[in-house]
Design a protein around this nucleic acid. Structure first.
Lengths: 189, 189, 189, 189
DNA sequence: AATTAAACGAGACGGTACGTCGAGTCTTATC
DNA sequence: GATAAGACTCGACGTACCGTCTCGTTTAATT
């Protein structure tokens, strides 16, 4: 029989789950990790602090969940590599390189890097989905990316768009397409 | 002419300058940004807190200086691209991807990304020197890197070694050499 | 009815209440207002600083409470006016005109005089109890004091014993008895 | 002969003397002792901090001088006791019981009470002149005040006007005249 | 005229405390 | 047992003054 073991006591309020995640996501989007506080999340979600801590034992785990929730669900689209890459860059920029510079992705990646549990969570809940999305995107153009290619493509975007905060212009996009072609084993001629 | 304008007032104690920077560098190396506190820096440097704040108006500016001081002064060396890249990767790993995962570079990059002043400082005092070092290294092998190449090479290292914290093995190194060759306009045959 | 409204949330620890007040009282007695620090109070009370600030939003409010706690609970006693006044003077001297000159009463009165909230607190928690005590004392000798008399008697003690720091001798005591007789509407012959 | 010993070196700038005292006086009048800072005084006087400290080795000594400078030079006047007392009360109120409550007199008296040197200074430079002024005033009405009377009259004013901050009304003034008559050995019938 | 001694402006320095913020834990009563 | 409410410990933040110190620069009186 399923896992609806009907644990004793009052069941968790699913509305709280949603409200907390939404609040955390919003705070993160507004001002990065430093703008995300457990207290603030609880207040904005209309929930007690305990209720947050029951779900996320640590600020960092909450932050990882919030970043994961920041990944836009829309798939890149397009038929040739140019379009696919263009759409992918645009979505990455929109999700993680907000104009005010406060990058949720980067600060959480940094914080998680010093905490084994959080790093594992970050890898599975943030990096994993991003890699899958990348894979599906490239698939549209008949290419596929190795683990190394993932490092190259993600790293380049991060360094350019988040760390250096330089704009996403045509020149960069063009070179990025070439880079993608080089690093993936596409069957394009 | 000459910039010895001899500003009025008691001059700053250069020993304090050095002690503060050293203390901050050490704290950073020991436990990352979260281990770096203004209070702790002052104490370890044997200096009053105000003396730190006079030089670094904010914890973040101190952190940027500390990261800049973390860049190892030794130049990569070697004659062919394989050696140069190998040494460069090793130095980057030693400087910024310490075994305990607490990456000073990444957390400071993240924190600085949300603060205009700090971001400018980070760019000039950390990214600048790294880029110059990279340039000199590649020069040994007769190559040179564009701004885009800098994004690609730095980003790849960061994503692989710091964000994903995967090890620096021969396979990665080999691919990285190829990547470098592709992205730089070297005159190697 | 009853004020056991049972406010939600964890109730305040009454031991902390007592420990804080005691610590503040002691620090005040040892070295006056300048020896009273919120930090020191917390430490001596074995309590976090925030726990102090939750009860006393400002150093000044803490100081007022400490001075109020300095008022000795013993009533003056005696049957004729000479004895009552003598005992009253002795108690005032013991409470507020300590030998080292650091008058907690005066410095808090001064500090509170520039802060509306603190002044109100000082009036109700320090001046009020002193006036009541004076009233009860005089009652023993069949006299009672007007508001003006309170000003005269308290003021004289303060100026002589605290501001000028002159000793409490027989001559002063004798004149003070006469003054009390003049300024109160006793029925003593 | 004379004390114009003409010490060697550059003589003190008398304009600095005046500017410092004036600045301190103003700061004191604006917000009491807590508004008086050596740094602020120096700045407002257009003078270096050293220049202040050369004259007043301690904030407290500066404060005493500032309070002394607050005593209005105008003599009370009048022919009968009512007028003399009325004018005296008005001047005391104007000098020391400013409407915003920050009593320079009281806070300095309090601070000086814990510091032997400052207390002596306060006695000679503040209390002395006030007592002399009182004496001259009463002399106009053919009365004279003992040391005890000084305690009574000053103390009453302080407690009423400064500590309790109650207003100076006709009732109080009337009673104060009677009190003065009682406590002085005037030759009025 | 050169020298000497102190005043002066400017600002660094060590120290101490302030009041605030946030993390994560604990304690109540209520649902 | 989940929840709301809020107290609690701990550690750090950035700020404000104090009183001391070290510079380089004036300004007299003395040699």
């Amino acid at each position: 029989m399923g896992d609806k073991a009907a644990r004793p006591g009052r069941p968790r309020d699913p509305r709280a789950d949603a409200a907390i995640l939404q609040a955390a996501r919003d705070l993160m989007a507004e001002g990065g990790l430093s703008n995300l506080t457990v207290e603030g999340t609880a207040q904005r979600a209309g929930v007690a602090k305990t209720t947050v801590y029951r779900r996320y034992p640590t600020k960092l785990t909450l932050a990882v969940a919030a970043v994961a929730a920041l990944i836009s669900p829309e798939e890149p689209y397009g038929e040739n590599l140019e379009d696919v890459v263009g759409n992918g860059l645009a979505q990455f920029t929109g999700d993680f390189a907000s104009s005010d510079g406060q990058s949720a992705f980067l600060s959480v990646a940094a914080a998680a890097s010093g905490d084994g549990v959080a790093h594992a969570l970050f890898t599975s809940q943030v990096l994993g989905p991003i890699e899958e999305k990348l894979q599906r995107s490239l698939g549209l153009a008949g290419a596929s990316a190795s683990s190394f290619a993932f490092d190259v493509l993600m790293g380049t975007m991060i360094h350019r768009l988040v760390i250096r905060q330089l704009p996403l212009d045509d020149d960069f996009e063009g070179r990025f397409v070439e880079l993608t072609r080089f690093v993936t084993d596409g069957d394009a001629p």
